[in-house]
């Protein structure tokens, strides 16, 4: 389990760490020949570290690409995992792929409206002030909590008999593991990113734009709905995509709250989508872990193939963020 914990911790921190502000020498790099020796060594170290990180990123991506293209067979995307002794007998990872899409959809469908609502409330209303401050620090706290801790918390919640309809129950004992449970907890993982991004978007709208709407007799609600939220559509999308990335990449919650079975385990007797949503399953991250040499399946070629698919998904998400931002520049923004 160490692997999943450490990925969760790493994931928890990568979002909080903002890119450092440009140094005061940033604008005058061309004059670095006149700098003191210490500054020049510092600059060299910065350059070196920057290049090192680029090299690591490129190496990881390249390695995964090569391995992925070598081992990924189209059939893997359409065949579910099967028990077998050799890699050729054990099927593909279609259940994991669909599971990833399912938790991503569930998580974002829950997190997006809630995140937008919280951001609007914090920026546009902020009342009662004390409650707003509490909400603010709660969200910061959630952003810092490793997802394995959220997962443990989730087991308590979703095993309660009041929430039996969200998972499987047997003779009054609620199982508490399901797509619903995992999706709900994963939405918490995405929430802080969405709130932060939407808040940033709302804050970047000048005050006089709101007032221009009030000054033609519009209410605050109408202004938010028709002016402010459309204006920060790029930030909403960015938050959603960042959140999706985090959800797709999470392992801890999947292991604890989704059951991490290698195949879907729908609940018998429930109507169609509900039987799967209340049942257990797995995702690509969990499949990679299980298929890796440390996992139970130990079929590293499929681990690489699945990791490659994950990487592609993340790259597509990044491209979408890029596209949205380029689009938004076409609409223009206010001066000053």
């Amino acid at each position: 389990m160490e692997a999943s914990i450490s990925t969760a911790v790493a994931a928890g921190h990568s979002g909080a760490a903002a890119p450092p502000p440009p140094g005061k020498h940033g604008a005058a790099v061309e004059g670095s020949a006149t700098w003191r020796l210490g500054d020049r060594i510092g600059l060299a170290i910065c350059w070196g570290l920057g290049l090192l990180f680029c090299a690591i990123a490129v190496a990881v991506a390249l390695y995964l690409f090569v391995q992925g293209i070598t081992y990924l067979k189209p059939a893997m995307l359409t065949t579910p995992a099967a028990s077998g002794f050799s890699q050729s007998e054990s099927g593909g990872f279609s259940d994991a792929l669909i599971g990833t899409l399912m938790v991503a959809t569930l998580g974002i469908v829950l997190a997006l409206p809630v995140g937008i609502a919280i951001a609007v409330w914090l920026v546009e209303y902020g009342r009662p002030a004390a409650l707003a401050r509490v909400a603010e620090s709660t969200i910061e706290a959630i952003a810092g909590i490793p997802s394995i801790v959220l997962a443990l918390f989730g087991t308590v919640i979703f095993s309660s008999s009041a929430l039996a309809f969200l998972s499987r129950s047997n003779e009054g004992v609620v199982f508490g593991k399901s797509f619903f449970a995992a999706g709900a907890m994963l939405s918490l993982v995405a929430l802080p990113l969405i709130v932060a991004s939407v808040r940033e978007g709302l804050n970047s709208i000048p005050r006089h734009v709101r007032e221009a709407s009030y000054a033609v007799g519009k209410t605050k609600a109408a202004t938010t709905r028709r002016i402010l939220l459309p204006a920060c559509r790029p930030q909403v999308a960015t938050g959603a995509v960042l959140g999706l990335g985090r959800i797709i990449g999470d392992t801890a919650i999947i292991v604890v709250l989704l059951g991490a079975t290698q195949n879907f385990g729908p609940v018998e007797g429930a109507p169609f989508p509900l039987d799967y949503l209340r049942g257990v399953g797995t995702t690509l991250t969990n499949f990679v872990y299980e298929a890796s040499p440390t996992g139970n399946l130990n079929q590293p070629q499929k681990a690489y193939a699945a990791a490659f698919v994950l990487l592609i998904m993340i790259l597509i998400l990044n491209a979408i963020v890029d596209l949205i931002h380029r689009r938004s520049r076409k609409v223009g923004t206010w001066s000053s």
């Binding site: 000048p206 734009v209 007032e211 221009a212 028709r226 206010w334 000053s336």
Partner: peptide, 8 residues
Amino acid sequence: FQQPNPFP
């Protein structure tokens, strides 16, 4: 207002 502020 002072700043032109058409809605987006």
